[in-house]
Computed example of a mutant assay.
Amino acid sequence: ITHCISHAMSDSVYRPCSCFCLNTGDSCCNPLSMGSIKKMIEEAVPGIDVLSLMIGKTVIQDTENGFFMDVNEQVSMVCSQLAQDPKLKDGYNAMGFSQGGQFLRAVAQRCPSPPMKTLISVGGQQQGVYGLPRCPGESSHICDWIRKELNSGAYTDIVQKHLVQAQYWHDPLNDDLYKKHSLFLADINQERVVNETYKKNLQLLDKFVMVKFLQDSVVDPVDTEWFGFLKTGQAKETETLQESVLYKEDRLGLAAMEADGKLDFLATEGDHLQFTDEWFNAKLVPYLH
């Protein structure tokens, strides 16, 4: 099994000393971000092949697309890249960081060939977000603009089509609006209709691993990293995956997967994407063997 990590579809990570922290944007090839994770995996698992996906023709495009490219198009591009790689024909393990975790789940649901064996979502917002408490990175003008667009019209066609964060904006106070106009998240989470193919394909995974950061100040609500979310109709109380309609009706097959031992919920101290090499090697690398 070869391994694949999502990066341009993810938020960014950079590596000071021995821990990982969030920064603005990301690219497949930055030696301080996804490049360092690629190197860490290669050192931990000798002989492993690691494919770091690029969304766009240049590193700059790769970074910008993480903010402004239609997520459905990104997923299609990734599916095409995976299908064309002969090393992946017998299957691969996938690791996505932040929004890359949910985007790779869309790959699993929509593109079963080549087969994804294990999906590791590191701080992924599986039920979306409702808030942008600390937009990551140095580009405050971008963060301010994103906040403004989300607050004023997250579900307008133009914002949905061109702002990545809007495509997983989940407003519990406007549930009908969300279900009707969400171009990406409402689709992959079976909010409108149950796509039996999505459900079947996700259940083909051997493991679906979700990592939650207990002091996360970026993702709101943090329970989304374990597929929980705010209860519909208000914005204070949360519910777990197991308490949700999604689980109780088993719209994605997650209840069946948990019964089969296919869901692993991991937690670690620290803010968004902050973890040590030691934790990564002890907790996540074993899934890649």
Score class of each variant (00 low, 15 high):
residue 15 R to T: 07
residue 62 D to P: 09
residue 88 L to Y: 07
residue 61 Q to C: 11
residue 235 A to P: 01
residue 160 Q to R: 11
residue 57 K to G: 14
residue 188 I to R: 05
residue 61 Q to S: 13
residue 240 T to C: 10
residue 260 D to H: 13
residue 99 Q to M: 15
residue 203 Q to D: 06
residue 246 L to M: 07
residue 191 E to T: 10
residue 226 W to C: 02
residue 176 D to W: 05
residue 15 R to H: 14
residue 110 R to A: 07
residue 256 A to T: 08
residue 178 Y to G: 01
residue 172 P to D: 05
residue 121 S to K: 08
residue 254 L to S: 01
residue 169 W to S: 03
residue 215 Q to C: 10
residue 137 G to A: 10
residue 197 T to Y: 06
residue 61 Q to R: 13
residue 215 Q to A: 15
residue 213 F to N: 03
residue 241 L to G: 01
residue 271 D to K: 12
residue 226 W to T: 01
residue 146 I to M: 14
residue 82 L to G: 04
residue 61 Q to T: 10
residue 102 Q to S: 08
residue 80 S to A: 13
residue 26 D to F: 11
residue 209 V to I: 15
residue 223 D to M: 10
residue 84 Q to C: 15
residue 163 L to P: 04
residue 252 L to C: 11
residue 104 L to T: 05
residue 101 G to K: 02
residue 87 K to C: 09
residue 125 Q to I: 11
residue 249 E to P: 05
residue 276 T to V: 10
residue 122 V to I: 15
residue 40 M to C: 09
residue 201 N to H: 13
residue 1 I to P: 01
residue 156 T to V: 11
residue 246 L to E: 03
residue 181 H to C: 14
residue 277 D to T: 12
residue 166 A to D: 00
residue 106 A to K: 06
residue 258 E to W: 08
residue 4 C to T: 15
residue 84 Q to I: 06
residue 82 L to Q: 05
residue 159 V to P: 06
residue 189 N to W: 04
residue 138 E to P: 10
residue 54 M to R: 14
residue 15 R to M: 03
residue 58 T to P: 09
residue 99 Q to V: 09
residue 55 I to V: 14
residue 246 L to T: 07
residue 157 D to C: 10
residue 106 A to H: 02
residue 225 E to K: 12
residue 26 D to P: 04
residue 273 L to Y: 05
residue 232 T to P: 01
residue 163 L to K: 06
residue 128 G to L: 07
residue 251 R to A: 05
residue 213 F to P: 02
residue 2 T to R: 15
residue 83 A to Q: 15
residue 65 N to M: 11
residue 20 F to H: 03
residue 107 V to W: 06
residue 247 Y to I: 01
residue 40 M to N: 07
residue 248 K to G: 02
residue 133 P to Y: 09
residue 3 H to W: 10
residue 220 D to C: 10
residue 217 S to Q: 15
residue 211 V to Q: 04
residue 126 Q to R: 07
residue 72 N to L: 08
residue 188 I to H: 03
residue 5 I to L: 14
residue 54 M to G: 07
residue 130 Y to A: 00
residue 102 Q to A: 13
residue 21 C to Y: 15
residue 286 P to Y: 00
residue 231 K to S: 11
residue 211 V to C: 07
residue 146 I to Q: 09
residue 238 T to Y: 12
